[in-house]
Design a protein around this nucleic acid. Structure first.
Length: 550
RNA sequence: AGGGGUAUCGCCAAGCGGUAAGGCACGAGACUUUGACUUUCGCAUUCGCAAGUUCGAAUCUUGCUACCCCUGCCA
């Protein structure tokens, strides 16, 4: 079907470029790609790039591939590829194709030979140290390597030798002959192939030379017919080299590299290197530790994929480097959870509450809605985009013996507190209103039991969650504190291991039978905090995990 | 010091010569059997600074200034 460009409104500078390329006929259709290196798990920063590539391609009627940029075998492995694909699909994207850079090694080698024949590449047997020294500095030009003068025939033979296996790692490299005096360091005869005797997770020991990113990436894009190759800002300096490779190796449709600013979020480590360090040093449970900003960690933490995609769209894309307030992410999560989460009553820090004016054998079944619907009728219809769970009801049991949360009662409340206080009223959520007529404390003065009586009141400021003591289920809960980098980016004392588990809590009977991990949420929102402000709902997300490994 | 970038509300971010969108955060009110949600209202006479062009500039020009990236046989 025909794409009606006039009905598409570009919403960022790259979409502008794409729109214009389509309009002018420079490209006939859009082809994009999300190219992670399989050397770790994806984090929310990658999600921004993935969302952008997949969504934008779709917006312009194009396609987007998932491509594993596996050109450095010593850092990569097949397991990461599987995990990455899983994360991408979890986000809701369906790659037009799944490719591996390593599939193109043969083509890349041929391109290298082509460059050699054209006198545009030469084999250098200088040591890495010498090459580095001859590269010059930011302010002084580099000097030509003596190897630069080799004949085509000689270079061809040497490159052949590099592939033969007799050259040790670091013994020789293939360099592009560009300009050692270029003010752009990337153009000072960059290394495009190196000798590396390491087994590759896909090609095994077939190769002992591997292409460098700057050479490999443009070729990967070209092979897949990528029209717009978007990457992060730090590659801006590489674009001239990208174009050099494309212009000297590729015929026909040429891919174009466009750079945008990567995502930063306050108090969030967004560096694969640090995340890997955390995993390696055992500071966290693994890549999917719920404190990690990895997609798998967020998933395990109960963050809906939809919230992450919404967040990425909301944050937008530009070239200015900035740091998004984590509150914006939490807002997206809360928004999604509000529309989809099942609401079960949970008492994280239980304290007994007896209703004294009810007979001991009093028992009542209360029908409550499972959630996914707003409690209050909406003047405006709920966004149809949000998949609200249908109204499902269940029955819960109420007896005179309950548990309520410790902070839902205060013997000496500050001004503005409107839950249970001595002689005060509060509504037991989904049920009647009670009045606190007394409370017991232990020797230390700690409240151990609240005594209330059922009333016929119809209005109370506070509404508190409760759980029937006799039928309550024990659940394990944990509070999470995010991992934040300290000033130097070093991850040391900021990791609060103890924050992961709080212990046992009480919940409605049956909650342990519910599916855990990818959707069901138990949370309390709108708490009264010490400073009188509400706490962030997200901080109160409680994950149930009966089999959590401490 | 050479090259490449970026500067619009506390934080993201539209804007592309015609007189500052939106989201988050924040503040005030309404509603409420989750202090949530929903809802109403408020929140940049100003676009890093300074000149200039123009009837008119955040948008064009010229100077500054600040911050980020680049000297891997990593990506």
């Amino acid at each position: 079907m025909k794409l009606d460009l006039d009905k598409i409104t570009p919403s960022n500078f790259i979409e502008d470029i794409i729109w214009n390329d389509l309009k002018s006929g420079k490209v006939k259709s859009v082809m994009m790609r999300f190219p992670p290196e399989p050397n770790g798990r994806l984090h929310i920063g990658h999600a921004k790039a993935a969302c952008f590539n997949f969504s934008t391609a779709a917006k312009f009627g194009g396609k987007c591939n998932l491509r594993f940029d596996d050109t450095n075998p010593v850092k990569e492995d097949a397991d990461f590829c599987d995990q990455i694909e899983r994360d991408i699909r979890w986000l809701g994207f369906d790659p037009a194709g799944i490719y591996y850079a390593s599939e193109y090694f043969g083509y890349m080698r041929d391109c290298a030979v082509k460059l050699i024949k054209a006198g545009l590449a030469y084999v250098d047997d200088s040591t890495p140290e010498v090459i580095r020294q001859m590269r010059g500095t930011l302010t002084t030009p580099g000097t030509d390597s003596p190897a630069r003068g080799r004949s085509v025939k000689e270079n061809l033979a040497l490159f052949e030798k590099m592939q033969g296996g007799s050259i040790p790692d670091g013994g020789m490299v293939l360099r592009a002959a560009i300009d050692m005096a270029s003010p752009n360091m990337n153009m000072r005869d960059p290394v495009i192939y190196r000798v590396l005797h390491a087994p590759h997770h896909r090609t095994g020991d077939k190769w002992c030379i591997y292409p460098m990113y700057d050479f490999a990436h443009p070729l990967e894009d070209a092979v897949e017919g990528i029209t717009h190759s978007c990457c992060s800002l730090e590659f801006e300096d590489h674009r001239p080299l990208y174009d050099w490779v494309v212009n000297n190796c590729v015929d026909g449709q040429k891919p174009r590299q466009i750079e945008f600013a990567r995502l930063n979020i306050t108090d969030t480590v967004m560096s694969k290197r640090y995340l890997k360090q955390l995993v390696d040093m055992g500071a966290v449970d693994g890549w999917d530790d719920p404190r990690m900003p990895t997609l798998s960690g967020l998933r395990r933490r109960g963050v809906p994929a939809h919230a992450i995609v919404a967040f990425c769209n909301e944050v937008g894309l530009a070239k200015a480097v900035g740091t998004v307030d984590a509150a914006q992410l939490y807002d997206c999560i809360r928004d999604e959870l509000n529309a989809t989460a099942k609401r079960y009553m949970v008492v994280p820090d239980p304290i007994e509450l007896d209703i004294i004016n009810l007979p001991d054998d009093f028992s009542r079944e209360i029908e409550v809605t499972e959630g996914g619907e707003y409690t209050v009728p909406h003047p405006t219809p709920i966004d149809p985009e949000k998949k609200c769970t249908p109204t499902v009801t269940r029955k819960i049991k109420l007896t005179p013996r309950l548990y309520v949360n410790r902070d839902d009662f205060m013997a000496d409340p500050p001004k503005g507190y409107h839950r249970l206080v001595p002689n005060g009223l509060a509504r037991l959520k989904n049920s009647f209103i009670v009045r606190c007529v007394g409370y017991d404390t232990d020797e230390s003065g700690k409240v151990i039991k609240i005594r209330c009586e059922k009333t016929d009141e119809v209005k109370a400021k506070g509404v508190i969650q409760w759980v029937d003591r006799d039928s309550a289920a024990d659940i394990k809960i944990r509070y999470l504190s995010p991992i934040v980098p300290d000033g130097d980016g070093e991850l040391t004392e900021r990791i609060d291991r103890d924050s992961l588990t709080v212990g046992t809590a009480k919940a409605e009977a049956g909650v342990n039978d519910l599916p855990i991990g990818e959707g069901v949420q138990f949370f309390r929102i709108g708490y009264f905090a010490r400073d009188g402000k509400q706490t962030d709902a997200f901080n109160r997300v409680v994950e149930l995990k009966s089999s959590y490994k401490a």
